[in-house]
Amino acid sequence: MNPVSLIFLALAMSTDAFAAAIGKGSSLHKPRLTEALRTGLIFGVIEAITPVIGWFIGQAATRWVESWDHWIAFTLLVALGLHMIYNGLKHEEAEEEKPGQHSFFILAVTAVATSIDALAVGVGLAFVDVNIWVAAAAIGLATMTMVTLGVMLGRVLGTVVGKRAEIVGGVVLMIVGATILYEHLSA
């Protein structure tokens, strides 16, 4: 995977966490930078761990699917991209009651929920030539940065930007999947 694709992948993986962080930030009264950094760190670490877990799962299956691994990566990334676009487009039926403070447990559960797609991406990355440690670090750093910014921007921007960020992230994932397929088929 080339460095540009890796950067786009890391940014795409962080968009759903960014959307969640905007919601978390909007529920706090004047969130401080320390709360934003704490939230970013929790999300970033979890988002960095999940693709590694997925990669190990994918590595276990590699010997059985080597001839069509690029199609698996493409299909997973496109499916995840479509799912993110769907989530970004669907309308919320009821406004959730937001907590006054964010406990570690609530932040960790939210981070795990937003990193399930990173687990699936990790499975897909097992089938392409990528250093999973570099990819996981890039995803974690991008997520930490985006979540920290999301919390700080949350009170001002609200959930509208968060939904659009998820749509953009879905489109980027689909482009990364198409790039992987193109690079493999043209080689």
Rank of each mutant, 00 (worst) to 15 (best):
V4S: 06
S5D: 15
S5I: 05
S5N: 07
S5Y: 05
L6P: 14
L6I: 14
F8C: 09
F8H: 01
F8Y: 09
F8W: 13
A10C: 08
L11Y: 11
A12F: 00
A12M: 03
M13I: 00
T15K: 01
D16L: 02
D16A: 11
F18M: 10
F18C: 05
F18D: 12
A19V: 11
A20D: 04
A20T: 13
A21C: 14
A21Y: 04
A21T: 06
I22D: 01
G23E: 13
G23K: 11
G25N: 10
G25C: 10
G25P: 12
S26Q: 09
S26N: 13
S26R: 08
S27V: 10
H29L: 08
H29Q: 12
P31I: 08
P31A: 03
L33G: 05
L33Y: 09
T34M: 09
E35Y: 02
E35W: 00
L37K: 00
L37F: 14
L37M: 12
R38T: 12
T39Q: 03
G40A: 02
G40S: 06
L41S: 12
I42A: 06
I42E: 08
F43T: 03
F43N: 04
F43A: 02
G44H: 02
G44Q: 00
G44V: 04
V45A: 14
V45M: 08
I46S: 00
I46T: 10
E47R: 03
E47Q: 15
E47L: 02
E47T: 15
A48L: 08
I49V: 15
T50Q: 00
T50M: 15
P51W: 08
P51S: 04
V52H: 02
I53R: 00
W55D: 05
F56S: 01
F56V: 11
F56M: 11
I57W: 07
I57T: 11
G58Y: 09
Q59A: 11
Q59D: 10
Q59T: 07
Q59I: 02
Q59V: 08
A60V: 02
A60R: 04
A61S: 10
W64N: 10
V65F: 15
V65L: 15
E66G: 03
E66D: 07
S67V: 07
S67N: 15
